[in-house]
Simulated assay, not measured.
Amino acid sequence: MSVILATAGLDDKIRFWEAPSGICSRLLRYADSQVNCLEITTDKQYLAAGGNPHIRLFEINNSSNQNPILSLEGHSGNVTSLGFQRNGRYLYSGSEDGTVKIWDLRSPTYSRSFDAKGGVNSVALHPNQAEIISGDQNGSVKIFDLGSSKCISDVVPHSRSPSTSSNGRVAIQSVDISDDARILVAANNHAEVFAWVPSAGVSTSTATGEAGGGLPEVYFRAHPPGAYLLRARISPDCRTLATTGSDGTARTFDTATWRQTRALERHGGWVRDAAFSADSSYLVTAGGDRSALLWNLRTGAPVRRYADHDYAVTCVALNDSST
């Protein structure tokens, strides 16, 4: 299959779509809980889905098997974020139980666990495949070194929102790092975005500052005051940041100027997740209006709506890479 597009949500179902037609081509049932996050392996063979508190791995190209081929047990709370290492052999995850875990997919149990000291809302893997970045409910951005199994950086971006408590801490809702490792973004649930832009040769931990130090090079509010931010994603070409919010919009920003380029406004509820196409020209968004939308980012127009879910769509995964 050249394009793999999957959505999931509060109806405990995962749907695969024919992207051009908008037809649901396959339905999987995710027993026991809602689905919080989805990720597709680079080779398009497997889909990982995170729920409460388990992670399940499904075959993509075997439509006769509706059951997971692997269930990963070890988290004790909602799995909020996950992803694969480049070769697809390892999976990483973050959970509201306050841990970041690494899983060898040849085993149903985790191989390593890091204590984030607060519920984890988002995790991202550094392109060097050697560092995991997390954003947590205590307002911290942490970087864990996979070689030493240590936290090598712990930064609290201080909120400038007038409704913030005196310590400036607001839950970090989403973290991401660009494929060229030159931009690290953390966004809190007040829709404030903090970005570090390391110079060439500077490690991620040095750029953010060691153990609570360091200030972001860029700060802006992505959505209007009072709106919550749900997700922040950097495009594969590293030129665009997309954010999603409770104001019913997804917004895009130029990472060279950090100015808003698009406001995508066709969802009828919270926009909870987003995924870029491989060429960065399209964006798929997941909405509380029980649908996902495919957007042409050159025009800002919706191209297709995927609308068979019974309840809110919480997450989306897209792999249309030709490699």
Score class of each variant (00 low, 15 high):
182 R>W: 02
187 A>Y: 04
199 S>T: 15
187 A>F: 00
184 L>S: 06
177 I>Y: 02
180 D>T: 07
198 P>R: 06
201 G>I: 11
162 P>G: 10
162 P>C: 10
170 V>Q: 12
178 S>V: 03
185 V>F: 02
188 N>G: 10
191 A>T: 10
164 T>W: 01
198 P>S: 12
173 Q>P: 14
169 R>Y: 03
157 P>I: 10
189 N>C: 15
154 D>I: 00
183 I>N: 05
202 V>E: 14
186 A>W: 00
191 A>S: 12
201 G>W: 01
153 S>V: 03
148 S>V: 08
163 S>W: 05
153 S>W: 00
192 E>T: 05
153 S>P: 08
177 I>D: 04
166 S>L: 05
188 N>P: 09
184 L>N: 01
199 S>A: 15
195 A>H: 00
160 R>K: 14
174 S>R: 03
203 S>I: 04
205 S>L: 05
181 A>G: 15
206 T>Y: 01
171 A>I: 07
189 N>I: 09
192 E>D: 11
167 N>E: 14
206 T>R: 11
176 D>L: 01
160 R>A: 13
182 R>A: 14
179 D>Y: 13
149 S>A: 15
157 P>C: 13
178 S>Y: 05
165 S>N: 13
170 V>E: 04
147 G>N: 13
182 R>M: 09
203 S>R: 03
205 S>K: 06
199 S>F: 06
195 A>G: 08
198 P>A: 11
151 C>F: 00
193 V>T: 14
169 R>H: 04
188 N>A: 06
164 T>L: 08
201 G>A: 09
151 C>S: 14
165 S>D: 13
150 K>I: 01
191 A>K: 00
187 A>T: 03
200 A>D: 15
205 S>P: 01
183 I>Q: 05
179 D>A: 13
190 H>Y: 08
156 V>S: 06
